[in-house]
Amino acid sequence: MHFAVLQFPASNCDQDCVHAIRSLGHTSELVWHKDTALGQADAVIVPGGFSYGDYLRCGAIARFSPVMQAVQQFAKDGGLVLGVCNGFQILCEAGLLPGALVRNRDLQFHCEQVFLKTDNFATPFTSAIPRDQALKIPIAHGEGCYFADAGTLAKLQANGQILWRYCDAGGAVTEAANPNGSLLNIAGIANERFNVAGLMPHPDRSCESILGSTDGKFIFESMIAALQQRGAAEAA
């Protein structure tokens, strides 16, 4: 499978994402923010960083970049799009995902390992995740506090759109395990069609044991499995 990884001025996890995908035996290329096409991409990753210096709001400027118009169309056509950290913020700003990410409640930048409980395994982003395991994946953000109004939160819950919530090592979703004040401990969500997802933690930084965890692989492997199934269905 071929992954397009977007590259904005001040993206800083773009190479990590490319590396992670290649380490899984698939191909990946960077797509510059001024490009208007995504090439032969089977899926798109919007990587972490500080696109456009995080000026105005995180992701606010990136969402109007030429490449994001191509991503809008790609998502509309049902393509798989994953946003990581700043990529999650960009997808929220772009309206591809509901809600917004605001300043961490303690105003501090958090760079640490966290644990994630997967709430819905029946999605292209979660199907390969072991059912009984909290994922150990690092975060690195100052603005990762998920916010949405009560109506949106209720809809997210009812539809199973909450994919990951911060939990402790044993998988318990507790207030103490919430690093940033996110409502309902939300770490990552999907859109209603389940072809666009975003999360603050970095699966791209947890695909090799030398980095302390390989749990991030499960998310990319889920996407690859979904793409392979699609390919098989189209060929049949």
Binding site: V102, R103, N104, R105, D106, L107, C145, F147, D149, G181
Partner: peptide
């Protein structure tokens, strides 16, 4: 910031 949004600043 909207009233409902946490404003730690």
């Amino acid at each position: 910031p909207k009233k409902a949004v946490l404003d730690p600043q």
